[in-house]
Amino acid sequence: MTASLPRRRFLRAGLGTTTLLLGGGSGCSSSRREPIKFATNPWPGYDPLYVAREKGFFDEAGLNVSLVDLTSLGASRRAFERGQVDGCGATLVELLLAADQSGIRPQIAAVVDYSNGADVVIGSNTLAGPADLRGLRVAIEPGTLHIQLLALALASVKLTVRDVLLVPMPQNAMPAAFADGQVAAAVCFPPESNRLLEKNGKVLFHSGQVPGEVVDTLVFDSSFVARRGPEVQAFVLAYYRAMEFMEQHADEAHAIMARRENIDVAELRATLAGLHYVSRQEQRALLAPDGPVARSLDHLQGAMMTLAQLRQSRSLKDFLIARDLIAASGVAA
């Protein structure tokens, strides 16, 4: 999704869980409990969590939250699959892979943003567009939304991923690989995308050309939601409280976020221009059975099945999204 920050279970836990979540309000004791361990990678969509921590919103909600800083989406997903964290920031790619490869039941607590130009395919400035990638080496981080965006870029010129040479590497290794000529292009987002542009890179394709296709979510394990559903709801509400703070006190919030991303405020704001934060009020429509997330999931799943990255297909309802809970959170005070 935009600038160079790496991203990329509320779902049906059964009627009993939904009742617990909806009926329990915040349901949090004022005493500090076992931590909620939540993994994130650098990406502005998740940064309101750090605003919530710094401003004490988690504490005020009675939550003991441990934010686990990891370097990539893949690292966050692996920690989630291994049970090292209770939840993580994830794109739909991580959601599908976690469900397919680990047997856990990930549940989406909220969609936090969608990429609106932040995620990009960057190539040498000698390339005119995606069509020129045929036969060239393209860097992607395996198991991330990179494959989704690359497939979309190539499909726009009637190519497929089989028409390029995929070079797997962590996103933070891409600037050096590009500068050294090891790859002709890379799929990435800020801050690494900014580094590639500084090395005479050129944007060949961006997520703004496929609006609503690339989303970021807050995801929890279904067993955790079953045990501690009211805290998950309070966690999401603290996120949205941080979002409101960001709207009212942009300078202070952006300074917190920039420190988290290890970039300056100007670069952060440039990155924010490439994404759309999803409000509480937008959740119900976004997560409707025939809504944008369901359509995006189906589109992505088809590409991943073609690449043999998934063993079976799923629909959004298989992830048991508690849309009623999320909508209730959206109107909560």
Rank of each mutant, 00 (worst) to 15 (best):
Asn194Met: 05
Asn116Gly: 08
Glu261Arg: 03
Leu21Tyr: 02
Ile256Lys: 03
Glu198Gln: 15
Asp180Lys: 12
Ser279Tyr: 05
Gly129Gln: 08
Phe10Tyr: 10
Arg162Glu: 11
Glu267Lys: 10
Arg314Met: 11
Gly143Leu: 10
Leu20Asn: 06
Arg77Asn: 10
Thr306Ala: 07
Leu272Tyr: 06
Asp113Met: 12
Asn125Asp: 15
Val68Gln: 01
Ser4Arg: 08
Ala79Tyr: 11
Leu286His: 04
Ala332Gly: 07
Tyr239Cys: 00
Arg228Asn: 09
Gln309Pro: 12
Leu22Glu: 11
Phe224Ser: 03
Val183Ala: 01
Arg33Lys: 11
Ser29Tyr: 09
Thr271His: 11
Val157Gln: 01
Ser329Ile: 15
Ala322Pro: 13
Asp298His: 00
Pro48Trp: 00
Gln283Ala: 05
Ala270Asn: 14
Leu272Met: 13
Ser279Gln: 07
Thr17Ala: 15
Arg195Asp: 11
Gly291Lys: 04
Gln209Val: 04
Ser223Leu: 10
Glu231Trp: 11
Gly229Thr: 10
Gly212Val: 14
Glu60Gln: 05
Ser29Thr: 12
Glu247Ile: 11
Leu149Met: 13
Lys158Asp: 14
Phe10Trp: 08
Leu70Asn: 02
Pro175Glu: 08
Glu34Asp: 13
Leu150Met: 04
Ala186Leu: 01
Asn262Phe: 03
Val210Arg: 02
Gln301Asp: 01
Asp113Phe: 14
Leu154Ile: 08
Gln101Asn: 09
Leu159Trp: 08
Asp69Gln: 05
Ser30Tyr: 07
Arg259Lys: 13
Asp113Gly: 09
Gly74His: 04
Phe235Tyr: 02
Glu198Lys: 14
Ala242Thr: 07
Gly74Cys: 00
Ala327Thr: 11
Gly229Phe: 09
Gln171Ser: 13
Cys28Pro: 06
Val112Phe: 08
Leu165Trp: 02
Thr71His: 10
Thr144Glu: 04
Leu159Gln: 10
Pro292Ile: 06
Gly143Thr: 07
Phe10Glu: 05
Gly14Ser: 06
Asp113Trp: 11
Ala294Met: 09
Leu310Ala: 02
Asp298Tyr: 03
Arg33Pro: 09
Ala153Gln: 13
Leu67Phe: 01
Leu73Ser: 02
Ala79Thr: 07
Asn116His: 15
Ala328His: 12
Asn116Ser: 10
Leu5Lys: 01
Leu149Asn: 07
Gly181Asp: 04
Arg12Ile: 05
Val225Arg: 00
Gln248Gly: 13
Asn172Arg: 14
Lys55Val: 04
Val112Asp: 06
Gly87Asp: 04
Asp86Thr: 06
Asn116Gln: 13
Glu94Lys: 04
Arg9Trp: 15
Ala39Glu: 01
Arg78Gln: 15
Gly208Cys: 05
Glu213Met: 11
Gln209Ile: 03
Glu141Met: 05
